[in-house]
């Protein structure tokens, strides 16, 4: 579009101020991190990221995030399904509460979950007879990650499930398809892109989660330390190069995942717009 066809005012103003703001708030700090990590020599970088304690934290973080995301995939499917498909009392309340993990500060979530799942907690006490410990163990990390990323899958699925016109299913059923076939051949292909986006967002969130996790994890080296805690520890030790090296790794991983999400979103077009 050429400038002469713009009827609306404020293009230069909004673009200029917007770019200025994003440069100061987003770009400048991010560049500082990149510059800092570029000063690290390759040998040093390898030395930092092959620290066994750090490697354990990577394993813990990715494994916990993977399990939490898988759980949220199932829970998200279930909740999005019942919220879209069925009419039942309390539906509006549940729909509202789904956003709680976004609104509740992560520190509060961590504090509360660790008390809830502790051995004398409301839920934890029922698990003691089965010898299941959640607070201050690896399972606690999973619970914290599940909680903080519950909304992602549900909120990406809801609009596409609503869009799925009942005629397709009716047609399939008239043609003799079983319910299982309807789900696998009609519904699943329709919602898969949205599902993948929700899963990716949920995974990225879990990878970076800090506040909720540190309250419940116990933070034992090699066992229940997550990567963001390792970065935090390096910062506390004034070891900024190591912190930057690990931060860059996490940043690149998250940005790659989000790039994939963007591409998916563009590929599958407008119906997935949030």
């Amino acid at each position: 579009m050429t400038k002469s066809t713009r009827v609306l005012p404020g293009f230069t103003l909004s673009l200029g101020l917007g770019v200025f703001y994003l440069s100061i708030i987003v770009l400048l700090p991010a560049i500082t991190l990149v510059m800092q990590s570029l000063q690290i020599t390759w040998d040093k970088f390898v030395f930092y990221i092959t620290d066994p304690r750090l490697l354990s934290s990577f394993r813990v973080t990715f494994l916990a995030a993977g399990i939490a995301t898988f759980f949220n995939l199932l829970l998200g499917l279930l909740l999005a399904w019942i919220l879209v498909r069925y009419q039942f009392p309390g539906k509006k309340l549940i729909d509202t509460l789904i956003d709680l993990p976004f609104a509740l500060p992560t520190a509060v979530a961590g504090l509360t979950l660790s008390a809830l799942f502790a051995e004398n907690g409301w839920i934890g006490q029922w698990l003691v007879p089965f010898d299941i410990k959640i607070s201050y163990t690896f399972c606690g990390i999973i619970i914290a990650m599940i909680f903080t990323s519950i909304p992602f899958v549900i909120r990406t699925l809801q609009p596409v499930l609503e869009d799925l016109s009942p005629e397709f299913e009716e047609a399939a059923e008239t043609l003799g398809a079983t319910r299982r076939q309807v789900f696998l051949r009609i519904i699943l292909p329709h919602i898969t892109p949205a599902l993948m986006i929700g899963v990716a967002l949920s995974f990225v969130r879990s990878l970076g989660e800090f506040g909720a996790v540190i309250f419940i994890a116990g933070n034992m080296p090699y066992e229940t330390e997550v990567v963001s805690l390792m970065i935090f520890t390096y910062i506390g030790e004034y070891n900024y190069p190591a912190a930057s090296a690990v931060a860059m790794l996490i940043l690149i991983t998250s940005l790659l995942l989000l790039l994939i999400v963007q591409l998916l979103q563009n590929y599958y077009g407008k119906r997935l717009k949030r």
Binding site: F11, L15, V26, P29, G211, I235, Y240, A247, I250, L257
Partner: peptide, 29 residues
């Protein structure tokens, strides 16, 4: 305009950045 998509991506960037990493960026700056 040119770079519109890039601008939108930049708005979303803080979503993707872990809070501790964000803190580190500001600490370094």
């Amino acid at each position: 305009f040119m770079g519109r998509k890039l601008l939108i991506a930049f708005i979303d960037a803080p979503y993707a950045i872990s809070p501790v990493v964000a803190g580190l960026c500001y600490l370094l700056l």
